[in-house]
Design a protein around this nucleic acid. Structure first.
Lengths: 344, 344
DNA sequence: CCTCCTTGTGGAAACGATTACACGGGTGAT
DNA sequence: ATCACCCGTGTAATCGTTTCCACAAGGAGG
């Protein structure tokens, strides 16, 4: 592979001039620039990004650490992130933490070693100081979707969506359909999305004079299998819930599994709803009602915030509203959706 | 961030010794090694991967260029690739080509600039010489899932799965259920998986004395929307097919969409099957019959082949068999599955 | 005519690691 | 005692860029 020296030789100029020509530095003559460009073309020269990074101390690369690549929500997020980053001239390296703290650490470490310019993280459960230490050490960090507490002493914007209103709508919807015993399959308590969604649910319930007994809170870990187990536990209760709300789409899938393997039917025997809408929910049996996050917008906003921080501007946290998408998994609602909102 | 010099100073040795101690070079005394390790620990030193790569001319990074991150098949592949790579001491950078040749080129270029050690690609439609040029220029390349012709003059192993037998089984299954007018939604003709699957289908049909008229070949692009369009076209035919085989899962999703929006039902009005099994197919209405690839094994084999090439060993192409998973989307088959095979 | 600035250029010093080479001192064989 | 060798270590070159600094040539202003 040709180096800058080869180009310089071919163009009959020094390496300094080649570098300047390529980086659109103003003080290089039209003529020299032309000769350099020609030489570059002829040799098929491409600057060595590794060497460049070493010298300039920037890689134009973003790290994205997500909790689970197999979760359609995160792949959509990842896709949006990559697109926006590319538009801004950055590449992104994705690390899949698979909901395992030690894997998350592994990726954070590897990415730091690579000297990425900034880090986008949707932190998993499990308190490890590495992430915050990294932020404290000066690497620009932005949280997306989830965040972890203790980031007060360091500037880490959070880009997320607020499901409170949508959850309220969902509970109203369930209530209207006659469901009174409502249960939730929660995510790990240590993740914000884990606890937050339970809180929102509990509050919404309270507004209708309903309680959320401990038996009706299933402990999940955002994976399908845990959704199945939690649902089976619900079904074994002396008084099983009439509706189950899964805090993410994978656990909803597991729940669907569980009720089906008992020979029961959704929504006739039990209603089901999920957080995070995905294309497949349209085609499940039955189509499932879900709280939809503006995933793409979230990803793009997160990248913009991160790049702002990297390039020395200040970045602010962003919260975007989620909305309820009613389908058939909670029962037929008739034609009236008093609280339906128009698409944002 | 501390550099190797800081460590050397702290440990009271030269940078050379630090480097040697860290790279388990044999000739460094126990005592020096201990002091170095202590200093590393105290300072929280991490070697700068960029500098190291520049010097050693290897990044211990693999590039993975896939055609579509949103396709569950590819995300499962990506996940397996990352796992195996990690086990072997490599990181992977994923590039999403989104079925667009120019994006594929963009990623190949970016990855080459980064001096990745090897490239794993599942090429999109559209002939651009860049990919083969890269391989010819000496970058180890392995094709996974799909491949492109013209790679004969350069050693590019292909890791893929052979669906021929499974497609034969599928057609037998459909035939047994009484379906005679069978259609296929093909992928882009320029991708091998696009044309190959059509050929396998045609051959299997021929074995039953059935033809595959042009009207029954829908042109898709592996995206959901194209599956919908193709299916609508089928449905508009004076004599619509009795069964539709989608060459990937996303197009099957689109097909499902199309038949549902006409108020028709699967499998009563039309049967449906897909290439690429995914978890969601269990929960669609109805569960869909699919040809399942050993995706994880494919990804792992691909990484091993690539690393073999990188580390100077020779790598061979690998072909793994796919198998048929019968569900309900083609109709009830009774209890007998004469050709059912046990899980590999 | 001299000075001062501008413009275009090249030489050489970084960046942070790895590694070839040299060297000093100990050890075993002759 | 001499020699050859090995071991542990340090000095310095190197990887491919960017960029600081020096410098030459030419133009403008006094």
């Amino acid at each position: 592979m040709p180096g800058i020296k080869d180009v310089a030789a071919r163009a009959g100029v020094s390496v300094a001039t080649v570098s300047r020509a390529l980086n659109r530095h103003p003080s290089v003559s039209e003529e020299a620039r032309a000769r350099v460009l020609a030489a570059v073309e002829e040799l098929g020269y491409r600057p060595n990004a590794v060497a460049r990074s070493l010298r300039t101390d920037q890689t134009r690369t973003l790290g994205l650490v997500i909790s689970d690549v197999m979760n359609p929500y995160f792949t959509e997020l990842a896709r949006a992130v990559e697109e926006e980053a590319r538009a801004l001239g950055y590449s992104v390296i994705i690390g899949n933490a698979d909901e395992r703290p030690e894997l998350q650490d592994h990726h954070i470490r590897t990415l730091s070693d690579r000297r990425i310019d900034g880090l986008l993280v949707s932190p998993t459960d499990g308190g490890t100081p590495l992430l915050l230490d990294t932020a404290r050490a000066g690497t620009p960090v932005v949280f997306v979707d989830r965040w972890i507490p203790g980031a007060d002493d360091v500037d880490v914007p959070v880009v997320r969506s607020d499901g409170r209103d949508a959850v309220r709508e969902l509970v109203a919807h369930l209530h209207r359909l006659g469901h009174r015993r409502l249960a939730i399959i929660a995510g790990p308590a240590a993740t914000t999305t884990g606890s937050e969604r339970v809180e929102a649910f509990r509050e919404a319930l309270a507004a209708h004079g309903l309680a959320l007994p401990d038996d009706y809170i299933g402990q999940g870990d955002f994976q399908a299998e845990s959704g199945r187990r939690a649902t089976e536990r619900f079904l074994d209760l002396p008084e099983p819930p009439e509706a189950v709300f899964a805090a993410d789409n994978l656990m909803a899938l597991g729940a669907l599994d569980a009720v089906r393997s008992r020979g029961l039917r959704v929504p006739d025997d039990i209603a089901l709803a999920a957080f995070d809408d995905i294309p497949w929910f349209v085609h499940t049996d039955p189509p499932v009602t879900a709280v939809a996050q503006p995933t793409g917008a979230l990803g793009r906003a997160a990248v913009r915030a991160l790049v702002d921080r990297i390039e020395g501007r200040t970045a602010r946290s962003v919260t975007l509203p989620a909305r309820l998408v009613v389908r058939r998994s909670c029962g037929e609602d008739g034609e009236t959706h008093p609280q339906k909102r128009s698409d944002p």
